[in-house]
Amino acid sequence: MAIIVGEATRLVIQGITGNQGRFHCARMLEYGSRVVAGTSPGKGGQEVEGVPVYNTVREAVERHGANASVLFVPARFALDAALEAIDAGIKVLVAITEHIPVHDAMKLLFRARSRGTVVVGPNTFGVISPGKCKAGIMPGAIYSPGPVGIVARSGTLSYEIANHLTLAGLGQSTVVGLGGDRVVGLSFVDVLEMMEGDPETRAVVLVGEIGGTAEEEAAEYIRTRGRKPAVAYLAGHEAPPGKRMGHAGAIIERGKGTFATKVEALRSAGVPVADTPDQVPELVKRALAGGGG
């Protein structure tokens, strides 16, 4: 089964004629993802890597049954492109684009919620269900199919951990990049809920970092409703107290958001936290052997 993307996913690449879009279109095809169309306003009629290019997402949906979009459109135009995809009925929007203004992200997600569109990102490496569909910019070769779900805030750090798991013989069901921005479509809790309902996922690895309260919320979810075993790695133990967002940030986070509070929340929810990335496979093996799933 896997979550978010799988065998039935038919991708449209928004911004397919740009450098990034073109390069990653080839990588996704190589991996075996079904890239059925691309869009680039004014460039309809062209082809990229054999994939037909249209002016609008609607055409890609109508002619090729596209149901998920991978968005590479530059930040200044990303909001309009994302709204176009949502309004065209796209079910999963993977927003790779970095530096989308936060107010644009809030507008985008507000509309997505009202239409029931799942948004991965912005500023994400994407989502991959190994062996089935790669919708993003992650290096496909480091993954293998298997029972471990990964949900991560940070791209490269999650590659590091996926690679350790694969080398240890622990394949992955789905790997989700939440996105590095402050406002993103999916939270750890959203993905944990999906993974709870996915028969293929037997254990979950959370890759978090300091700042925000998403890890604490994940810990609370696991403590109260989680049935599958979870393991975590967090980055930022040595980070100096970050830029404070004025009083408002302190009021919102209130004793949350630090490395110590996150580790404490996770451990008290029964989630072991690895000290270094290379410890993750051992913790996952123990979690799987401990009868989870």
């Binding site: 750090l157 590091e160 300091i210 980055a235 930022g236 270094t276």
Partner: peptide
């Protein structure tokens, strides 16, 4: 390092082995 998360993790791992980072 390449990526905010892995850069933070590198600094953490360095500290775990007794080193101190001069920068991020």
């Amino acid at each position: 390092a390449n990526g905010a998360g892995i850069t933070m993790a590198t600094i953490d791992v360095l500290a775990r082995f007794g080193g101190r980072a001069a920068n991020f």
